[in-house]
Amino acid sequence: MFAALGASAAGMWLATSPRAVRLRVIGATLASAGLIVAVTMFDGPSGELAQRIMFWLFAGAALVSGVCMVTSRDPVYAALWFALATLGVCGLFMLLGSPFLAAATIIVYAGAIIVTFLFVIMLAQQTGLSFYDQRARTPVMSVVASWLMLAAIMWTFQRVGAAPPPANEGPALVAGEIPNPLSRPADEATFHTLRSLGRSVFGDYLYAVEIAGTLLLVAGIGAIAIAPRRTEGTI
């Protein structure tokens, strides 16, 4: 696993540093391959074949497009790669039994955020590629730091949890009391349903939902206040 990670780090370094296109393609390939190999060191989904195939498809798509997004020289392409990575992650959401979140993420990210980002990119960069997109800042340091963290996390995942944690138990702050009871479905069958998610969100987290809604409202007003170009300053 560490060897695979080292290879992918080297690939990332090649891909982010300012080099010839060929070297960067090789680096990106190496980085993606290394990451995928590292992931194979873990236990994949143990279900039927179709599920396993789908996992590798989605995981591979997410990782490859993530690498490409980070290393791409063209911000438009990077945004598109990000959309693809979002799709992959949403596939994984689906495999984890949360179809609603998968759909919501696609709608919010691919449907709204990505489009807005692309819009801003188009608005800002009408003259083609800019020099600052060709240059990466401190590629070696950042790759080393990030990959060190990745290795530490993966190592932790491998080391801890020899036994799977008991189901239906979360951190109990008060002994003998089950926190957030509405977030614990009675059986596996109801886990995927939107109904149980709704009970959790609008039951246990009702106040948080209200606060988040207020936050959205404030952010919307703030964006309206900040963004427009005015002759004399902002509001």
């Binding site: 990451l35 590292a38 992931v39 194979t40 060191m41 873990f42 236990d43 994949g44 989904p45 996992f55 995981a59 997410a62 990782l63 993530g66 690498v67 997004m69 980070v70 990575a85 992650v89 994984l92 495999l95 984890l96 990030s146 990959w147 963290m149 990745l150 996390i153 993966m154 995942f157 491998q158």
Partner: peptide, 13 residues
């Protein structure tokens, strides 16, 4: 485990 690994890799990327 592999889901977690993919999440970690996305984070690092």
């Amino acid at each position: 485990g592999s889901f977690l690994a993919v999440g970690a890799a996305m984070f690092a990327l």
